[in-house]
Design a binder for these strands. Sequence first.
DNA 1: TGGCAATGTCAACAAGGCTGACATAAAATC
DNA 2: GATTTTATGTCAGCCTTGTTGACATTGCCA
Lengths: 169, 169
Amino acid sequence: MDEGPGSGKRGESLLFLTDEQLRKGIEAMFFAYKGFTSDPDRILEMRGYGRAHHRAIHFIHRSHGTTVNNLLAILGVTKQSLNRVLRSLIDDGLVESRVGSRDKRERHLYLTEAGLVLERELSDAQQARVRDAFRVAGPQAVSGFRTVLEAMMDPEMRRRYQRLTENGQ
Amino acid sequence: MDEGPGSGKRGESLLFLTDEQLRKGIEAMFFAYKGFTSDPDRILEMRGYGRAHHRAIHFIHRSHGTTVNNLLAILGVTKQSLNRVLRSLIDDGLVESRVGSRDKRERHLYLTEAGLVLERELSDAQQARVRDAFRVAGPQAVSGFRTVLEAMMDPEMRRRYQRLTENGQ
DNA sequence: TGGCAATGTCAACAAGGCTGACATAAAATC
DNA sequence: GATTTTATGTCAGCCTTGTTGACATTGCCA
């Protein structure tokens, strides 16, 4: 390793900020994210869906009646990209799109009964893995895990995340 | 929330395993991973590369002279998929492929000077974000972060991760 | 009434996964 | 020494999911 920025030990209490420690963290993110998505991916595949469908289902479930625009902002994709996914979910009867009552331009999105069933299935699979990991790691580690992840988000996404998690606390 | 598996409080010390806590963890992974990759992605885009190129560059740098087969196992993709990426990196003079001396069927992969430059650029961008997050969160949180991520990996990937991180400790 | 906002849709393109098939060279094995 | 297996590369085609650009509809609002 060369002496790039952040190399070496800058102080007795900063040993966790060496290049080597940072690299471990980076690689841990890579490998963990793979595991994180692998269980739901297997379920989605059987239905002919992909990760994008899971994300849409998750956040529609999370915020019943959310608008398309809001969903776009949370997911951070283009409307054309989201629309493709949403179309298939609506056509398959997993998501319902209702015209807004206050503002009739808006569409409010809800999971149907069938949508809730799939959501539960995906959620169970993903939660099982996260729960096991949390249990093995313990409460203190989990707290640290969340703290670091939050610090890693883009400010705009952090705001959205915090807004999502503060209700339902 | 319904009473799915893992719902509710099972004991005074298990409040961190409620569905709500798990969901926060899941959403934190989603939002954090976005931030985690956004800085390198911007650099890659200027060169006409994508995430797959970054991953290849990272692990070739990490393990100088690794074989194609080894890289395939670490990345968890097909050889056709990796080959496409590797081809462009070799053609662009960022990666060198040398015939193995012991086993001449194998190709050993190395970053060239130009490859090292790009690696450093990508690495600096990603490390800057992770370093800031680590610094803000503190050593204890970082330790918990790594513990949870490790517990979240597939066993096979965890073994690979640990093998990678134990040398160069 | 005119303009802006929310949504949907068509078309085209790119990245990066995948499968299947086939080729070559070298190692390993019988 | 002949055969099989391994490591790699490559062609072709398919899928998901992201992108841009253009355009239409509807409805809110000033």
